[in-house]
Design a protein around this nucleic acid. Structure first.
Lengths: 196, 196, 196, 196
DNA sequence: TATGAATGAGGGTTCATTCAT
DNA sequence: AATGAATGAACCCTCATTCAT
């Protein structure tokens, strides 16, 4: 009974979050109506405002949720120094697979926070920043060629993740693992036939 | 006289298009108001409807303008068969530079039709389709390794173009030529130190 | 135990009354929110409705409280007949001081019931009626000049009490006694230099 | 025809102002609904927002209108120095009559800006300030007794004007002239029988 | 005695669009 | 070619109040 204290409220809040997530993902911020969200949640409109102060507030909560989850994941994925050359590729593949797995497991949130939100820009730049750091460090350790500007490579990687998420992951064409492997192959080796 | 009438009308229409382009690029579709567009054009609201049937109509005209320009460019850039191995890289670089040049020269349109519009998806997929065709053909001719799935590579390339446009081109960090060269280097050679 | 229960309830009710009084005085009827009152009383909204049937009910209780207190005071202050001419001024001053003291001691209630409430009109007219009666009686006994229309004088006195309460009393500029003396001097003697 | 340019718009705006004035006077700010105003003006709700940016805006325009009119009147009524003793009374009566005339002629505005608005306080204090200045100057010239604190007298006068406006003027019991004469008699001579 | 959860009723405001001229 | 004036259709949000416990 003491366990049930506030349970219903928390459930209602979660229900609203889940429904809002779907609606925003499907229709975007402006075309999503509070009236529709509450209807799907079997509530009246004022009930919404018990749990969220405004339409923007719930939207931002969702974006932040996505944002935090992703950044945490990435930060916890810094590649430790001291790998042997042969270990690089599987390690990077693994990290990439985790990131793609996160995007794949949170499709609606990804749609909102990674694709359509104006602030997606911010998160993508943050991502690129962290990745660039990693790459540069590995470049200095001789794992990678000296020439590439790792800033540019990092942004490129983010762009690739973005597009392949939309076209392969969210369409169920490829799994996170497959996508990760292809990206790694592309970024490490390029597509050109080896010139002898 | 009837000539001049027609002239003025055409000028007004162009003015509206230009202003709408900026507004949409800056604020997005929903946050752009007809009232703001006409105010900046020194016109009243009904005047807008003389030239465009609706807000959506002018928006779509801009998107289509961007779309057509880009697709035309890409289609006219198919890489002719029969190149020697050494010619591939400069040729691809040249094509890429032209595309990036187009995006760079039409920044507001790019913002609208390539970044923020829901239909950007469509154009990106079309692009990827054409590019994949090219790549596969070249792959078959032995210019590229057999392993990579050129569908995936094409989408990746589009993603890279997207991100580097936003972060390097539109911020004046790099020129279209520089971006093109880096992309080509990355895609052809990868970043990994050559293993002997 | 049933005693204690009753006690706690009465205390809660008083707390609500006191807080509501302050809120109404500060923000007026419409801008005062039940949600704010109960928050300050450390209660939830339904608790409010245990003690008062509606927002209007608690408001009216406060207004009536003020109203009754003031009218009682005034009615108990009728000036007894048979005073000597010299006794009039101190007697009137004393009565006035009591009234002003009441307003001064009940600032929030005064704000509500005397200044901002639509029904303040009623109480002011009641006051003026009683005062006019008094004045007329004294006029007939020859204490006052025949010319002044005591109805008008009574309303004037109420107006003066109103304004001086707001500007002198509630701002702690003058004490009830000082205000009373000045009013009496003004009303009895006027401000004009005696023409010999 | 050129005369008619914008005529209809101006008329609609005036109509809205007039109707709003009545509604606010009758029901107060909060209980007045835009929906009611536009219904009485035979308009739809959005039309209101062509002419006024918000409910508050039209309300403030009315309050300011009242405020400005009254302050202008009072400021243009400063009593010139150099009057003879006998001229004071008729001169003051005349000024007072003009002020009361203004209140009487603008009953709804008076209700709004002098009685029910929170800012009525401000205007009353401004009024009292100007009046106090006048009185003090006249006091120094010997027209009035030395004892009265003219600050207090001025506030008193404002209070009297307030109450007599509500009870005599707006109820058509007395005319501005009659009210003015009674006020002047009261303030100059007081009500007490002359003590020889 | 009091709370968690929810609702009825409505109010102000915005914006694309149109009619008549 | 363009304007003055107005509207249809929503949408977000607030607040007093109540039900079940």
């Amino acid at each position: 009974m003491s366990n049930e204290k506030g349970l219903k409220g928390r459930e209602t809040r979660q229900r609203l979050l889940r429904i809002a997530e779907e609606e925003f993902a499907l229709h975007g911020y402006h075309e999503t109506k509070i009236s529709e969200i509450v209807k799907k949640a079997d509530l009246t409109q004022p009930a919404f405002y018990i749990y969220f102060s405004s339409k923007e507030a719930i939207y931002e909560e969702l974006v932040r949720q996505f944002h935090t989850g992703l950044i945490d994941l990435i930060e916890s994925s810094r590649i430790e120094p001291g790998l042997r050359q042969g270990e690089i590729s599987p390690r990077v593949t693994f990290v990439l697979e985790r990131i793609l797995g996160y995007l794949n497991d949170n499709r609606s949130l990804t749609q909102i926070g990674f694709i359509q939100d104006a602030e997606a820009e911010t998160i993508k730049k943050t991502m690129a920043g962290i990745i660039a750091d990693n790459l540069r460090s590995e470049q200095e350790h001789g794992y990678f060629r000296k020439e590439p500007d790792m800033e540019v490579v990092a942004h490129s990687l983010v762009g690739v993740i973005d597009r392949l998420t939309v076209t392969q992951l969210l369409t169920d064409r490829l799994s996170p693992g497959e996508v990760a492997r292809q990206i790694v192959d592309l970024f490490l080796n390029g597509i050109q036939t080896e010139t002898p």
